[in-house]
């Protein structure tokens, strides 16, 4: 077993984990932060995307021990109290989700996208979403949601 100490959504969380424990399973099963989802086992779908030290990362591709000492933000930590993050508002306003399964990872990935490029073109948004799969929306309303956040956020 290995000891990890990770700051998750602003709170320091220390725990013993098997060295092979994936960050996504640490978050979901030890911390009960089930908003981060698992949609594949080859790091293609992006449903598990979180922020590690402010950069998006697929939590199924990171061992919990690799995140030791870092700051992790999950979908549960994105809103400021009652105040939704502009991307959460954008997804709601523009119907950027249907089944909601890809949504947390999609939103976290978009946070990174807008941090890097606050005023992206439609093509830049579409290319920026390359690491996140959605089977419900055909992406058009997701693109609208990012534009909404970029314009009004």
């Amino acid at each position: 077993m290995a000891q990890v100490s990770i700051t998750v959504n602003g709170k320091q969380r220390s725990s013993e984990v098997e060295p092979r424990t994936l960050l996504v399973h640490f978050l979901r099963e030890q911390l009960n932060l089930t908003g981060t989802h698992v949609g594949c086992d080859t790091s293609q779908c992006g449903a598990c995307t979180v922020l590690i030290d402010g950069r998006s990362a697929k939590a199924c591709t990171v061992f919990a021990v690799q995140a030791d000492g870092s700051e992790v933000t999950t979908i549960e930590g994105l809103a400021e109290g009652e105040q939704l993050h502009p991307l959460q508002t954008g997804f709601w306003e523009e119907h950027g989700l249907q089944c909601g399964y890809c949504t947390p990872g999609m939103i976290m990935s978009c946070v990174n996208l807008l941090n890097d490029n606050p005023k992206p073109s439609e093509q830049e948004i579409r290319e920026g979403l390359d690491g996140n799969l959605c089977r419900c929306t055909g992406y058009q309303h997701i693109v609208n949601a990012v534009q909404h956040a970029a314009t009004k956020g």
Binding site: R28, N32, L33, T34, G35, T36, H37, V38, T74, I75, E76, L78, A79, L84, Q88, F91, W92, E93, H95, L97, G100, Y101, T103, P104, I107
Partner: peptide, 21 residues
């Protein structure tokens, strides 16, 4: 009308089967 399902889903508060304990 914007969806009433969304507030829980955009905040990671939906409960899917694998979330159950």
């Amino acid at each position: 009308v914007k969806r009433r399902e969304d507030p829980r889903l955009i905040q990671g508060q939906g409960t899917y089967v694998d979330d159950l304990k």
